[in-house]
């Protein structure tokens, strides 16, 4: 599994190298421009991340997350979801930076390769910020009556929580 994933990553990089050598449609300058853009985006997010990281650290230091996780653990165990990912599930639809802050806190507490860490990763990778995305798209065409858009998106997100736990149990080695 890891071998295949690493092969894909290396394949992409080799493809880019080949494109830079042989293709006339791209150039190294453009590659560097893209890199600059990425750096700018990442650093541009820093002020938001600082503020959110403070609140996420406070939340985890207050013990509330552990308290709630313990409360819902019996229920979560029945459907096979690690209860530690609860704060991430709540934060994911609202903000990308906040969920990045959440997941790095979760990795620090439980480990990136733990079951909870794996499920959180798969969840973060296969879902998006529902509220932000739908706000951007519906606002662009002045739509106020969004009808069943949010219910359907949240239902899909809940399914995603369930399915990411299932797939981690099936495909990834358990610690």
């Amino acid at each position: 599994m890891e071998l295949l994933a690493s092969a894909v990553i290396c394949g992409v990089i080799v493809l880019v190298g080949a494109a830079l050598l042989f293709s006339k449609r791209t150039s190294f300058d453009h590659f560097i421009d893209g890199t600059k853009d990425g750096i700018r985006t990442c650093v541009g997010l820093l002020p938001t991340l600082i503020v959110l990281m403070v609140s996420v650290s406070m939340l985890s230091a207050s013990g509330l997350v552990d308290f709630l996780a313990e409360k819902i653990a019996p229920f979560c165990e029945k459907i096979g979801i690690p209860s530690e990912i609860l704060p991430l599930v709540i934060m994911r639809p609202i903000s990308g930076s906040a969920s990045n802050a959440m997941i790095s806190e979760l990795f620090e507490q439980y480990g990136a390769d733990s079951f909870a860490g794996n499920v959180a990763s798969v969840l973060l990778g296969s879902s998006d910020t529902i509220l932000y995305v739908s706000a951007v798209y519906f606002a662009s065409v002045n739509v106020r009556k969004t009808r069943h858009a949010l219910p359907a998106a949240f239902a899909a997100m809940l399914f995603c929580v369930f399915f990411s736990s299932l797939i981690c149990r099936l495909l990834l080695p358990q610690d």
Binding site: I13, V16, A19, L20, S23, F31, T41
Partner: peptide
Amino acid sequence: TMGFWSGVMCVLQDIG
């Protein structure tokens, strides 16, 4: 990582 991949994606976009 984000900077590098952003560049990689830029090249991938160029080559179609």
